[in-house]
């Protein structure tokens, strides 16, 4: 696997698969060292990193989430400090909320995250509404960078259609992901299901 820096910020459009990728990265990096995962999603009340509390506890991964996560209090509250997590773990994964609305919360940590100390992944899904064209995905990336004050360091291609994902669909998305990476001036780090196996952790209750 890629040599990540100690802080990995995972951004992207709503539903691009940030949470599933963050959880998979946490499980993989836990084989190399101590891992903390931060649920910084202040936008979404459903389907979030804090859902995997037990799985993370099982693998000694420290979950840091707002005490209001998965409660009925839908206020955009950050009730924790990630600096402690960064000091005490080899890797800290920060799962950010969708779009620039979600990435706004990152702004609070911009002074704490000087360039060169973090990787910021931008997750793209060619099948997801509003990011189906490279231009759309790039426009959103620029908005995320603007509000967070952080710079993207790599693209993650997570093109999928949930249970209807096919090998052809993933293969056909490569030119799309490569174009985004090229225009953003950063590498295409990996394509899920192709050169990065992912376990589907974010599931519907009947699946």
């Amino acid at each position: 696997m890629i040599n990540f820096k100690n802080i990995i910020v995972v951004t992207g459009h709503y539903g691009s698969g940030k949470t599933n990728i963050s959880a998979n990265l946490a499980l993989k990096l836990a084989e190399r060292g101590t891992v903390s995962i931060v649920d910084l999603d202040v936008v979404n009340a459903y389907f979030r990193t804090a859902d995997f509390k037990e799985l993370f506890a099982d693998k000694q991964i420290k979950l840091i989430a707002s005490k209001y996560a998965n409660s009925s209090l839908d206020v955009p509250a950050l009730s924790f400090d990630i600096t402690g997590a960064v000091r005490s773990s080899d890797y800290t994964i920060i799962d950010v909320g969708g779009d620039d609305e979600g990435a706004r919360a990152l702004g609070r940590y911009r002074d704490f995250l000087p360039t060169q100390t973090y990787d910021m992944l931008y997750v793209v899904n060619k099948s997801r509404l509003n990011t189906q064209k490279p231009e759309e995905a790039l426009e959103l990336l620029r908005a995320i960078e603007a509000v967070s004050g952080l710079k993207c360091t790599g693209i993650v291609n997570n093109t999928h259609l949930c249970a209807e994902t096919t090998a052809e669909l993933i293969q056909a998305s490569l030119p799309y992901a490569e174009e985004i990476a090229e225009k953003a001036g950063v590498p295409l780090l990996f394509t899920c299901g192709l050169d990065f196996p992912v376990e589907i952790l974010v599931k519907k209750i009947w699946e």
Binding site: Y14, G15, S127, R128, L129, Q132, H160, L161, E164
Partner: peptide, 12 residues
């Protein structure tokens, strides 16, 4: 096909 949330799909 496109991947959408139920709410978005309803609006569209």
């Amino acid at each position: 096909k496109v991947l959408m949330k139920g709410n978005e799909a309803c609006a569209e």
